[in-house]
Design a protein around this nucleic acid. Structure first.
Length: 430
DNA sequence: TCTGGGGTCCTAGGACCC
DNA sequence: TCTGGGGTCCTAGGACCC
């Protein structure tokens, strides 16, 4: 039996999550905004038809949204993450192996399903997910991940296919590859597209038929792999065990421009706190913390400043207090008072780590060892309180975190966390 | 100082993804 | 006024070693 991979994803996933809990959103244009209500990152078909593009800044389309009756939502990651888990639970009923690729996409191994039955299984899967979670999906099937992705793209763009496209058959596949633009291929971005167009490549079939060697020269081994994958030779295995992550970052734009040192310190302390939570969830630690903050390139005429500094810790840790101290130290050694009456107006700050390791397996310091016997239980107690009473219920004192946050990210149009907060359950009146 | 042929590790930057 | 956040992989080049 031939190898077969399916890629299933939620249609306009974030928008579909909002629709599940508000029937009035059906058939009207809906968009979901990025953090800070910055730009559109999910659009329903109706919103796309109005010309709203991926990444359109909200302040530029606000008026159009009002005029055209577009329903606008801030992103509600708690809700989307929970809905994602529900869809994956359904996928696992249909396939022996599932790779969760992103919040709304999963690869399924269908190799053991007879080729004649794969389309039927995909239709059954779609219907089940729709009925059990409310999320509409599309399914693409092919002998490699790259072809499954391409099939999914076809399933989405040709309504007659009813949300399922199977590229298992070689002749059918060849016909489709001639009709699809090479820019739709997974892994071909702007830069590669320009190179390929210069080489006279237009369709996916053109790319498939290229000699891999010159492509490797121009697009590295990544480009070469894509060609093999398009020919049906699998180079990208299903990754069933999530790999240990290598880096972790918490970065946010401010909801206003920030000029005060105390506010910047409060922000990086808050980001370091969140970083600690993320690290502890994976049992990970870091011994280097990079702190950055900068002005905005959109503020033309304003003085620009971009700062990035890396603070070294004596040994790996995920202790919030140690991370906050490191983050504040980063600000300490880089903060400058403006030379004249035009202060730098910072737009964004963050903390970044790139050297994560399992804390239990990390080497201990000879000098400056942190007290893990104390830190572990303290952090566990803090995490437990915050899990029970909501994030931010317990914060370290002294870091200024208890004070009002005047800079924090905007979510002015966020829907309730219907599935994870008992206080935000929908109300029914009878 | 020059001459040669390997290695490893780290970092920065580019590209791409969702 | 208002333009997201968080990842991965790959390569080149420098520092350093034998």
């Amino acid at each position: 039996m031939s190898r077969a991979i399916a890629l299933i994803d939620g249609n306009s996933f974030y928008c579909s999550c909002e629709r599940v809990f508000d029937p009035k959103l059906a058939r009207v244009p809906v968009i979901v905004l990025s953090n800070n209500d910055g730009c559109a990152i999910a659009r329903t078909a109706e919103a796309k038809a109005l010309g709203i593009k991926m990444g359109d800044p909200f302040f530029k389309i606000r008026e159009q949204c009002r005029r055209d009756g577009v329903r606008v939502f801030s992103s509600n990651y708690t809700l989307y993450g929970d809905m994602s888990a529900r869809t994956n639970a359904v996928y696992r009923d249909f396939a022996p192996a599932v790779e969760i690729y992103s919040i709304d996409e999963s690869f399924l191994d269908l190799s053991d399903v007879h080729p004649d039955r794969r389309g039927e299984l995909a239709r059954d899967l779609r219907a089940t997910v729709r009925s059990w979670t409310g999320i509409p999906t599309c399914v693409g099937i092919g002998p490699t991940k790259t072809l499954a992705k391409l099939a999914n793209h076809i399933a989405k763009s040709i309504p007659d296919l009813d949300g399922v496209c199977d590229l298992s058959d070689e002749d059918e596949r060849a016909a489709w590859l001639c009709r699809i633009h090479v820019g739709e291929v997974w892994g071909i971005g702007r830069a590669s597209l320009a190179k390929l167009e210069a080489m006279g490549v237009d369709s996916v079939a053109d790319l498939r038929d290229l000699d891999p060697r010159p492509v490797r020269k121009a697009m590295t081994v990544v480009g070469e792999r894509i060609i093999h994958e398009l020919r049906g030779l699998s180079c990208l295995p299903l990754e069933l065990m999530p790999a240990q992550r290598k880096g972790c970052a918490v970065t946010r734009s401010f909801s206003r421009r920030v000029t005060e040192r105390a506010v910047l310190e409060q922000a990086v302390a808050a980001h370091a706190t969140r970083l600690g939570e993320k690290l502890r969830r994976g049992g990970l630690g870091t011994s280097h913390l990079t702190v950055f903050y900068h002005t905005s390139t959109h503020d033309r005429g304003d003085p620009m400043r971009s700062v990035s500094t890396t603070v070294t810790l004596p040994e790996a840790t995920n202790d919030t207090l140690a991370l906050i101290a490191a983050a504040r130290h980063g600000v300490d050694r880089t903060w400058r008072e403006a030379p004249d009456d035009r202060p730098w107006r910072y737009s964004k700050a963050g903390v970044v780590t790139t050297d994560l390791m399992l804390l239990d397996a990390s080497p201990r310091a000879l000098i400056g060892q942190l007290d893990r016997k104390r830190s572990g239980p303290l952090m566990a107690a803090m995490d437990a309180c915050n899990a029970r009473f909501g994030r931010g219920s317990v914060v370290p004192a002294r870091a200024g975190l208890a004070a009002k946050r005047t800079w924090s990210t905007k979510f002015e149009m966020r829907s309730p966390r219907y599935t994870t907060q008992v206080t935000e359950l929908p109300t029914a009146r009878a």
